[in-house]
Amino acid sequence: MAAFWKKIVRNRALLLLVLPGTVWFLIFAYLPMFGTVLAFKDFRISPDGFFASVLSSDWVGFKNFEYLFQTSDAYVITRNTILYNVAMIILGLVSAVGFAVLLSELLNKRMAKVYQTGMFLPHFLSWVIISYFAFTFLSPDKGVLNQLAAYFGTDSVSWYSEPKYWPFIILFVGIWKGIGYNSVIYLAAITGIDKSYYEAATIDGARKWQQIRYITLPLLRPLMIILTILAIGGIFRSDFGLFYQLPKDSGALYPVTNVIDTFVYRGLMNMGDIGMSTAAGLYQSLVGLVLILTANYIVRKIDRDQAIF
């Protein structure tokens, strides 16, 4: 025990640095785990407080999970959630890496910072604001796209009642909002690559594309694998604002915009069933954990050095 406290005192400066992050995780990540018990209870609010409500609520086992699996929309929301996330992971990875490589190759570094700031700005905008930006283009009456269609003599489109267009709109807007933030991570990794590699390649006569292909991308590969594995863990979760605010909660678009998160939200708003929403969140977390472990296991089998653990 004395040796333990000596280590604490010796490393007190480093421990103080990680203390804020540790406290944040304890309060917002670990303490809420006790609330997962609500997924197995018929939660009823008691005037005696939250803990009394939890203790007095009846135990119902897996009944709350039946709401997700027995509903007629189970297949649609599961399909939409998985397919959108798979597309986001693939397209987001390609676009973020591509944008980071382009920024790193710009000779005018001042303009590179301007472009980076411009692409990073959407990350800080809420989905409510972005939904109104999109509405200025997609509005049936005053939208820019329909005004252009009228100018060229073509028929206008009722965008918020035509489901066939929205998979492309959602993917485009989702990637556009996140490309700046994701590219910063890869740009930082590119900045840390030893410049002597590029100098040696230039002396050997390698062109820019060859340098990117044989130096930049291989050295980015470990980071790309790690971020992809972590992204796979969220494949059963969706950005609520993207699928709820952007389509303006249009009922006509539910076949292509309804995902697990929006489905649970609507169920919670209509029925007020807290146990059901907790069960959905627990289900998403467990599936995400299994997917992360599976993806990491596969990567470890292929190349042990590239795995997270």
Rank of each mutant, 00 (worst) to 15 (best):
L187P: 06
F240R: 09
D194F: 12
Q211F: 08
I229G: 00
V256C: 08
K208P: 08
I226D: 04
S250R: 10
I212G: 02
N270S: 15
I232S: 06
I235C: 06
I193E: 09
V256R: 06
T216W: 03
D249G: 07
R213T: 06
Y197H: 14
A188E: 13
I215V: 12
Y254C: 00
Q211P: 05
W209C: 08
Y197F: 15
L220G: 02
A200F: 10
P255A: 08
T202M: 15
N270A: 15
L217F: 07
P218M: 11
L217D: 05
I260K: 07
I232R: 03
I190H: 09
Q211I: 08
I193D: 10
S196C: 08
I203D: 07
D194P: 13
I226A: 10
L268W: 07
L253M: 05
I260T: 07
E199A: 12
V259Y: 02
L217I: 14
Y265A: 15
M269Y: 11
G192S: 15
T257H: 04
W209I: 14
G233P: 00
I225C: 01
G272E: 04
L219M: 13
G233Y: 01
G233F: 01
Y197V: 06
I226E: 09
L223K: 00
L217S: 06
V256D: 09
T191F: 13
V256A: 07
R266M: 10
Y265V: 06
Q210R: 15
Y186Q: 04
D261Q: 12
L246R: 08
F236K: 03
T262C: 07
G267F: 08
Y254R: 12
L227N: 09
K208G: 06
Q210D: 12
Q211S: 14
V259K: 01
I212A: 04
D249H: 11
R266Y: 11
V256W: 06
Y214S: 14
F263E: 00
D194W: 13
G272M: 04
E199S: 13
Y198R: 09
A201T: 10
I203E: 10
P255K: 08
A252H: 05
M271P: 00
M224W: 05
F236D: 03
F240H: 10
M271S: 14
P255E: 10
D204K: 12
A252W: 02
R213L: 13
A206N: 05
Y197N: 07
Q210C: 11
I235F: 07
G233V: 00
A252Y: 09
G192W: 12
R237P: 00
G192N: 14
R266F: 12
I215E: 00
R266D: 08
P255R: 10
S196T: 15
T262K: 12
A231D: 09
L227I: 08
Y244I: 00
Y244M: 13
F240P: 03
I260Q: 09
G233Q: 02
S238K: 04
I229P: 01
Y214A: 13
T191E: 15
F243E: 02
G251Y: 05
R221A: 11
L219E: 04
K248F: 14
I190W: 06
L219G: 03
